[in-house]
Structures are given as structure tokens and as C-alpha cells.
Write a protein that binds this DNA or RNA. Sequence first.
DNA 1: CGTGACCTTGAGTAGCCTCAAGAACTGTGG
DNA 2: CCACAGTTCTTGAGGCTACTCAAGGTCACG
Lengths: 236, 236
Amino acid sequence: MHELKVACSSCSLRELCLPLGMRSADVERLDTLVANRRRVRRGGALFHVGDPFTALYAVRTGFFKTCVATEDGASQVSGFQMAGEMLGLDAISHDRHTCDAIALEDSQVCVIPYDRLEALSREFVELQQAFHKIMSREIVRDHGVMLLLGSMRAEERLATFILNLTRRLKARGFSPTALVLRMTREEIGSYLGLKLETVSRTFSKFHEEGLLAVRQREVRVLDEEGLRRLVNAPGV
Amino acid sequence: MHELKVACSSCSLRELCLPLGMRSADVERLDTLVANRRRVRRGGALFHVGDPFTALYAVRTGFFKTCVATEDGASQVSGFQMAGEMLGLDAISHDRHTCDAIALEDSQVCVIPYDRLEALSREFVELQQAFHKIMSREIVRDHGVMLLLGSMRAEERLATFILNLTRRLKARGFSPTALVLRMTREEIGSYLGLKLETVSRTFSKFHEEGLLAVRQREVRVLDEEGLRRLVNAPGV
DNA sequence: CGTGACCTTGAGTAGCCTCAAGAACTGTGG
DNA sequence: CCACAGTTCTTGAGGCTACTCAAGGTCACG
């Protein structure tokens, strides 16, 4: 649990993260908010279901998954988070975390003590607005996943997933065509409501059709338009 | 668009709605917040996708569904809201509504102008906290739906749905065993990621097995434990 | 009493899952 | 640097769940 000092005003993620839409002068007011950073090794947990809620986390570097559990012990991936994205919003409701957050590679997060966020956002309108937008955006994102799980077929789901990843990578200045998946086929399947074999088969199909070049976890997007057509195909 | 004056402090829903967990003295401070009520006739829309966002709504009486749309024009029910539940949280993110809210019976909502909510919650800690909890609770609810859509089979989905409805009705002082569905089989199916025929068949199956008494939209829960066993059944 | 919306039920099918075997890759210790 | 164990990925065969298409029944309402 290594801790480092950090400032939002000098952070390269300020366009994406909590300072969403703030002017530089405003961003400096956030510097008192982020207490410190915390490192999480690959495979390690940032928090578990049931842990008391004290802080939100913003991914600084690395990659996470969040998992929710059913009463009968089954578990499902509810999201993948990359740099600039927020973890722990679900915990505000009951003062305890309702999912596990697991690092899929060595990662660093900014620790945002929640009582401090509450206090500062009472006197700092821009922060209040940014925070509310982030919560709301999470709700919109979840509705998108519900749409995917409720009405798409396997190919549409995987195409949507890949396009979503590339869009987020692009926003962070990475190549939107060459990606290295941080998660297993099983984790992708869990997120998309599919079995790992179906994910694997669908990757192979996309490969055959010239939409993707797939070599284990390395994926290159060869035909973005083709993927997009798949997603927007009306019905069958 | 009939408008009526209203006060949270004299509202019977204050245990469930925005005054979540506040003391009576605090609740009175909310009375300046709710501008007015609005009536929505059965089948009418409270708001549509793309409408500018100005206010949140709390259901006072009646029943709503929210629908999100895919790019190719398909539509899916993303939730059902009853008295005391909030509508419009998704719109904060982009200043526009991202779903349609349709009344499934003649309904009344309390109109909560969002700028007023922001302003008041800056000087009123209890309101700030209640509002954040409501947003967070919506995120947790969505994760539950994702779990349902991603990993449950038709019977588990419908059993979960019925148990969820009865729990919410009970919290509002209604009978938890005799319910009248406000929505069609198609709307239930859309919400649960099933076709209407599958919903109908599953209702019939529950009827045969003595779990429910189903007569069109009237449903009586005969064996709540049995439904619960279905949901918690590990795996198959 | 007729019309339209909604619900039920049946028959056949498609898509995804299960089970299974083997290949490819990763990391570890010698 | 290599051998080996464990994990992850791929692919095939067969089965089951939920879907599609279709017909008829029920109900609300004008």
C-alpha cells in the first residue's frame, strides 16, 4: 500500500477524470482533495464486497475489473475501468462496497476521501457539478450494458465491446486499432453475458471475416466500419 | 400539465423518497425545493430522449416505465418506477434526457428543479447526502439488472422480477402477495431480455407449479419461498 | 356487438451452452 | 536457457433454452 503525493492540476488525465470540464484555475482547488495514491499489484484487490466505504478511487495508471456477486455465489464482471475512470460509486448508497475491484495489471489509483469530496463540493460548484455528471454518466453507461445484455446477439455484443474499448483508448491517446486485451476470454464473457467458448468462437469468426486480426490477447481492428455495421444491423 | 402545490414535510412518501433518512425538522427545509406537481395521463410521456434536462421527478402516485433506444431504432425497458422513486438521473450527465419516461397509469410526479436541488444541497448536508445515496442506489440497482440479464435463465429472471415488485409494494404498505401488473407481457419481456411469449409461458409454468395464481395481469404469490429457491438455485 | 390490443399455446428452429480434447502461452525453478 | 506445470485459448460435437412463426382466445372499450 505504497503512498505518493499527487496533484490534479499537474495530472495528464484532467480532461477525463474528476476535473471534467473545469478551467485550470479551478482544477487547482482539487489539489487538497486527493489524499494520496495507492498501488495495486496485478491480481490484487483495491476493495472487496462488504468493505467499509471511505473513499472513491480514480484510476491513474493500469486497468481494473469490478465484479458483483449473486446470492448463490456466482460472480459477474460489471465493468472494466481504465485511466481517468472512477471506482467505488456504488458504495455511497450503503456505506459499504457492493462489488470487488481487481487490478488486471499493476496499477495506481488516486484516493479521494469521500467526506472531503462532500465538503469541498459544497463550497465549489464546479466540483459538485462534475461529480454529479460522473455519477449520472455511470448510470447511462449501465443502461447501455443493459441494452447490450438484453437485446444483442453474441456478435453484436463483442463488436460493441471492442468498439467501446477502442473509443476509450483513443480518448487517452492510444492507438484505436491495435489493442492488447487486459482480460481473459472468461472475463469478457462474464461481462457480455456469454460463455468463454462463445467469445473465443466469435473472435475467430471476426478474424475469418477480416474484421479483426486476433492473436491471443493482441487484437488489431482491420475494419471498424464492418464492426459498426454489425452493431447497427436492425434485428436479424 | 396540471400543476399543484405540495410539501415534502406532509408527504406520506418521505420515508422512501428524497427525504431518505432525514429527521422531520430537516424535511421541512425541502419544502422550498419541490416546485409543483405534474399530472401524466396513462400512456403519456413525462419526458422523451433528447429533451433538455431541467428537473428531476419523484413519482408521487402512479407507475412509470423508462425506455432506452438503440441506434437502429429498437427500444428496451430499462426500469419501472413506482411511488417515491426518482426519474431523470441519467440526464444530468449530458443535460438531456437519455430515455423516455412513460406513465403506465394515470400518475402524478413532484417536479424538482435541478438548479434548485444543486443550490440547496450545497448548504444542506443531509440533502446532499440523501441525493448522492439515491444516485448510488440507482447504480447498484442497475448492476442487479445486469446480473439478471447476464447470468439468469428465464425462470430465474421472472421470479426475481416478481419478488422485486412485491418487496417494493410491501415497502409502500400494499399487499405483497396480491398484485396487479401495470405493464404488458411485452414490457416485462423487454425489461428481462425475453420475448413476450417466453414471459407468458413462464407465468403459465409458475401457475402450474403452484408458485403463482395468474389471471392476465392479476398475480397472487402463493409460494414466496418457492420463488426464492428458484432465484438462489446454484447454477442449473 | 364488433374491433383492436393483449395474452396463451403449439410446433419447429437457431443460437448459445455444455462437455471434451488438445494447443498455445506464461511463469517458475533447476 | 530449458523443462515443466498451470492457465488460457481454440475448436468440435451434441443438446437445450429461448426464439420465431402462427393461430386462437380473452378482455376492454366504443
